[in-house]
C-alpha cells in the first residue's frame, strides 16, 4: 500500500536578509492511510514547515513530497490548489473561519469551490457534518457569535465536508482551554476512526500527544 504521505530527504531553506536559515535538514517520513499522527516538538522546531510541505502550501528546497504517490514539487500553482481542494482538509490554530459567512455557509464553502455537487447534495452533506460536530443549533450563527471550541468544530466540519484523504491541523488546541482542547482532539479521533481519514496534527502539548496513535518528534529541523 502506498503511504498517504511520503517525505524524502526534504530540505527547506528560508532566506532571511543576507543569510539563509535552514528549517528542515533532510526530513524523511512516511505516514500510512488512516493514521492519527501527531508531529510534536517545541516552537521553531519545524512542525509547521512539515505540515506546509504536506499541505502543498510550500515547496521543498530539495527532496520530494508525495501524496498517495503523486509527486507535488513539479505541480503548478493551479494544480496544487486543486489538489488541496480535493484531497486535503485544513484546521488552523486560529480557526480561520470566514467571518461574513454563517456556520452552514463556512462548511459549504469548499463544496462550492469544488463545483461538482448539486445544491441538494451540498445541503445534505453540510447538515450531516454540522450535526456530527454538534453545532446543528448554531447553524445560522456567524463565527463571532461562537465560542473558541465551537469555532474549531466548524473548522473541523469544513475540513471534512469534502471527504479529504488527509486532514492537516496546525496546533488545533493551542487557542483553547485544556478541557475544550481535549474535546476537539476526541472529535478528531472519532472522525478518524469512523471515516479512516488520515489526520496529521502538530502540537507541543504532552496531553494531546497522548491521544495520537503515532507521535513524530521534531527538533531543530530533524526527526528525533
Amino acid at each position: 500500500m502506498k503511504p498517504a504521505v511520503s517525505l524524502q530527504k526534504v530540505v527547506k531553506d528560508y532566506p532571511l536578509g543576507k543569510v539563509t536559515v535552514r528549517a528542515l535538514h533532510g526530513v524523511s517520513l512516511d505516514i500510512q492511510p488512516g493514521e492519527f499522527t501527531a508531529i510534536a516538538g517545541p516552537s521553531g522546531s519545524g512542525k509547521t514547515t512539515i505540515l506546509n510541505m504536506i499541505g502543498c502550501m510550500d515547496v521543498p528546497s530539495s527532496g520530494s513530497v508525495a501524496l498517495d504517490g503523486t509527486e507535488t514539487s513539479q505541480l503548478s500553482d493551479a494544480q496544487l490548489t486543486r489538489l488541496r481542494l480535493d484531497r486535503i482538509g485544513f484546521i488552523f490554530q486560529s480557526f480561520n473561519l470566514i467571518n461574513v459567512l454563517d456556520v452552514r455557509q463556512n462548511v459549504e464553502f469548499p463544496l462550492l469551490l469544488q463545483g461538482k455537487h448539486s445544491a441538494r447534495e451540498r445541503a445534505e452533506r453540510v447538515s450531516r457534518m454540522v450535526e456530527r460536530v454538534g453545532l446543528a443549533k448554531h447553524a445560522k450563527q456567524r463565527p463571532n457569535e461562537l465560542s473558541g471550541g465551537q469555532r474549531q468544530r466548524v473548522a473541523i466540519a469544513r475540513a471534512l465536508v469534502t471527504n479529504p484523504a488527509i486532514v492537516l491541523a496546525d496546533e488545533p488546541t493551542a487557542n483553547l482551554d485544556s478541557h475544550t482542547g481535549h474535546e476537539i482532539i476526541e472529535l478528531m479521533r472519532e472522525m478518524n476512526e469512523k471515516d479512516h481519514t488520515t489526520f496529521i496534527f502538530s502540537t507541543h502539548d504532552p496531553r494531546v500527544m497522548e491521544c495520537a496513535h503515532r507521535v513524530v518528534k521534531v527538533a531543530d529541523g530533524v526527526l528525533a
Binding site: A78, T81, R84, F90, N96, L113
Partner: peptide, 15 residues
C-alpha cells in the same frame, strides 16, 4: 489572513 485561508482551502488566484 482570510485570503490565505481561502487560498489554502482551494480558492484559485483568479477567484
Amino acid at each position: 489572513r482570510e485570503i490565505g485561508t481561502m487560498r489554502a482551502i482551494g480558492l484559485r488566484r483568479r477567484q
